[in-house]
């Protein structure tokens, strides 16, 4: 069962990465305008301004 010593930290770290990504996406207002984001991806004007 020594493999657990590796697997458990790995699974926790991977989960933690996912959680961190989720927390970041909430903080950065990524879900504010899903409709617009769907269309913006087609636009050639690159746009990295945050939402006012």
């Amino acid at each position: 069962m020594n493999v657990l010593a590796v697997l458990i930290p790995v699974s926790l770290i991977l989960g933690g990465v996912g959680l961190a990504a989720f927390v970041w996406s909430m903080r950065a207002s990524q879900y504010e305008d899903l409709e617009g984001a769907r269309h913006r991806v087609l636009s050639d004007d690159h746009d990295d301004r945050p939402l006012p």
């Binding site: 504010e32 305008d33 899903l34 409709e35 617009g36 269309h39 301004r49 939402l51 006012p52």
Partner: peptide, 9 residues
Amino acid sequence: ISARVNMGL
């Protein structure tokens, strides 16, 4: 200064 469109709204 800046303008941002929210399409959902």
